[in-house]
Every structure is written in C-alpha cells, then in structure tokens.
Design a protein around this nucleic acid. Structure first.
Lengths: 251, 251
DNA sequence: TTTATTCGTTAACGCTGTTTACCGAAGCAC
DNA sequence: GTGCTTCGGTAAACAGCGTTAACGAATAAA
C-alpha cells in the first residue's frame, strides 16, 4: 500500500520532471539547472536534493523517461499500419523515430548525444524484458524474416570477430529468439546504425550543410534499406507534417 | 608584413588554444572555462576577452581548428596507400576518421555532437576550395567512379524531391565536377551518413550496449558499402592499434 | 505523548561568464 | 624626443551556478 507520504513524494518527483522538461524545451540542455527548477516550483534549490542526489541524477532520470516515451511513440506509429504489412510497420516506426527526434531536438540530444562523463545506464536489473525501443525494431525485423525469409548472411560469411560480438550481444539482450540466425542480427545492427546516423545527423544539424530538408534523403535511404534486403519498398509516408524546419545552424 | 604586435597577438591566441585543448582533454567539454584557461596561462579571465568575444567564440575557433586536423589526418591516411588502389585509399581514410574520433572523443563530441544553440559555421568566405574533409571523401569517390564506372542510380530513379536537394547541394559546394552524375552524389550522401552513424554512435558510447568493440562491425559495414556498390572489399586494415578501449558508459 | 523521520528553509563556499573602470606600456606621428 | 592613441593587462563587481551544512517545522511511528 502507498502511504500518504509516498504519494506526496511521487507527485513532487513528477513536478520536478515536468519543470525540468519545460526548461529543456525552452532554453536547451544548458537551461536545466537545479535552481531554475526549484524557482519554477516555488521552492529553494537545496530542497531538490531530497529527491535527486545531484543534477546529473536528475538528468539521468529525464533520459530514462524520454526513452520510454520514444518507445511508446514508435510502437504507436507501428500499430497505425495493419499487422500484415510488416514492411509498412517497420517503415512507419522508423519515420516516427525521426519525427520524434526532429520535434524534440534538445531531448534527443540528451539521449543520443555524448553522455556526460559519469553517466551509467540504470543497470537493467531483474526484468526479463530487454532494453528499449531497439527491441521493438528487432521484433518487427524478426517477424518479417520469419515470413519473407529474405536472404541473410550465412554464419560462415560473417567475420569471426564480428560473429563473437553479435553472439554476445544477442545473449545479453535476450534477442536470441529461437530460430533467428546470426545473420539477421548482423543486418539488424547495420540497419540500426544506419537509422541512427540518418536521424542523429539531421537532428544535430549536420545535414543542413548539404541538404536543407532531410526528408527526401531519409525516405530514399529507408527504401534502399528494404530493397537491399530483397524486399519491396514501403509505401510513401502518410501525409504527415514533415517535421518542423530550421532551428539551429550547423557545421 | 607582420608587425611585432601582430606576432605577439598570434602567439597568445595559439597559447589560448593550447590551454583550451588541454582542459578539454583533461576534464571534458565542460572543463573548458575562461577562468581555467586564463589561470593556466598566468593571466586573469577578462584578459581573454581581448582575443575572443565570448567563450562560445573561443570554442568555435577550437572546432574550426579540429576540423582542419581531421582533414589532414584523413588525407595523410589516404596517402598511405598507393594512388592506384582507390578502394584502399577510401577505406584507409574512413578508418582514419574512425580512429581520430575514438582517440579524440571529447573533441569529436564538440564537432559532431549537437552544436550549441547559437553556433554558426564561419561562413565560407571567398576561397574557391569548398568545405572540409567531406570533400576529400567525395574526390576519392569521384575518382573511383571515373575509373570503375560502378553503377549509380539514374537521374530518373532518384525521387524528384531528393534530386532537387542534391542538385542544390552539388552547386553550393562546388561538387559539380564535370561529368559526375547526380546518382554519384546520391551515393555519396548515403555513404557519408552511414559513416557518420557508425563512427558517432561508437564515439558517443551508444554502441557499447550491444558490442563492446565496434571495430568488427565497422570493418564489416565498410566492406559492405563497397560490395553493395559492385566493388571488391578493401584489404583488411593494416595492423594499427585498434583505437583505445573503454572510457565512458553509455545508453 | 514522545520519538524519529522527512521535507523544507537559510547561509555559505567556491566555481562560472561577463562587464566595468582603470592603468601601464608599446607603437606611432610629428 | 614628445605627445597621443591604441593595445593588453589588472582588480572589482554582478549575477548565476551546484552543492553542503546546520537548523526548524511538520508528519508518521512508537
């Protein structure tokens, strides 16, 4: 049962996170400060230390929260497409990931930019369920493979060094689904890195020096990822708003 | 001619940059502070404002310096390989890029992480020579295509939206080399994004949650980029030290 | 009712970027 | 060489930061 104190505490924690998020959106990552948050809540700064041991801890909690939201967003986008259209589901999930990144640049930066020197992910404790939204993509890919049986590299064609790495990865993350070949995990890793590059580069503003709209390249690369797997291209994106335009300069 | 004052000033600027770099390497991006640098030089903080209008300006200057160094590093690695072996040159340049990133994580973060909200690249003034190391890669790719004529997407096969973007890019960056088809620029953009994803993800520590050594995946993806172009894989990397191991945790 | 625990306060330390006012020395014109 | 100007430095100060310590009031547990 939850005592009254516990409920109060929980509410305060939520309020802190909300205030922190407001500052992040309004003034960028450097706008998050213990004092500013406290001021926002009508409290004094040291009071926050009853809830978080340090600013870094508070930020770590924010990151975990955002990760969950990304997962939900991606899953919701996936479920927009009928279950039979696995390619469409994968594509729509990928698009949702990009959209979230562009609509939440500061948040995305916190999660996928360089972590502060001392940040450690919260040590996935007991739960059997593995990491986060990465698993969402992998599940779709595995489902797709089980149905389409698109060609994946044979075990012998994967360099031994990479094979070891992938095996370790599969085991430690619970991705060793029965009957899934190592080659599929190999392709998953490659695809994930590619998606990350595409989205991060654009979200960080490093694509603007060549293209002033990243959408066409994203769609083309997305299609290419499917065709290079021997699958057909996904249907073009539903007429969604093409994710807000300029904001920061770049390199 | 350079007056004495100018020489003095130049020397001081250099010393500032050196001190700033030391602090970056020693204490991470947040370790760069006007006061710390000044202290290091036996000066007081406000004195630095005679050389840079703000800390952000100082950091922008650092970034420009590092970009030049990356370019030199990449070019040097390229010239390690005989000029006929264009594939080897491209591969070695790519490996150098990765190596630099892993050996200079804080510096890489400053350049390729999210730029501070107000950062604008120094507006490539007059010089005909275009951007930076990106052009180094493109030149190699164009040379390779002129010799091997590997297949590139036909203009009609590029979605119109992307075509416009690429055309604009090619013109604005001086990449419209005579006889280079748009399809090659399309492939270049894709390859660059992929390389960025691979390297940034590893440098930011976001690959450690799946692989504890990024090298095998990097080599495999590098090879894949060539084979998917219909070219042969590059020779394995020369026995270089495999770029320092762990340092920060990740997500 | 008494005792502990929790949550908030104020005060303070040492750090940060930046601005202001001031001062000596170097460079330059005459 | 003298006088003026510009440059490169100083000290002092403002406003903000993360964090710790000491203390008081309210709440829960005994």
């Amino acid at each position: 049962m939850t005592t009254r104190r516990e409920r109060m505490r929980e509410a305060t924690v939520r309020e802190i996170q909300e205030a922190a998020r407001r500052h992040l959106r309004a003034h960028g990552p450097s706008g998050i400060s213990v004092r500013a948050i406290a001021r926002d809540m009508g409290m004094t700064a040291p009071a926050l230390y009853r809830y978080y041991a340090s600013l870094d801890d508070l930020i770590a909690a924010m990151i975990e929260g955002y990760k969950g939201e990304i997962r939900e967003t991606v899953e919701a986008a996936r479920d927009t497409v009928p279950a039979e259209d696995l390619i469409g589901r994968l594509a729509e999930a990928s698009r949702a990931f990009r959209r979230w990144a562009l609509d939440h640049r500061p948040e995305f930066t916190m999660i996928f930019g360089a972590p502060p020197p001392g940040y450690a992910p919260p040590a996935k404790d007991a739960g059997p369920s593995p990491i986060g939204f990465g698993a969402v993509f992998f599940t779709m890919m595995a489902d797709l493979w089980e149905r389409e049986r698109f060609p994946v590299p044979a075990d012998e064609d994967i360099p031994p060094a990479l094979r070891d790495q992938l095996l370790h990865f599969a085991k430690s993350c619970g991705l060793d689904r029965a009957g899934v070949p190592l080659g599929l995990i190999r392709l998953y890793a490659g695809a994930w890195v590619r998606l990350y590059g595409l989205v991060a580069m654009e979200a960080f503003g490093h694509v603007k020096f060549m293209l002033d709209d990243g959408a066409p390249l994203f769609e083309a690369e997305l299609a290419d990822m499917f065709t290079s797997l021997g699958l057909e291209s996904p249907a073009p994106a539903g007429h969604r708003p093409s994710a807000s335009a300029a904001q920061n300069a770049d390199s």
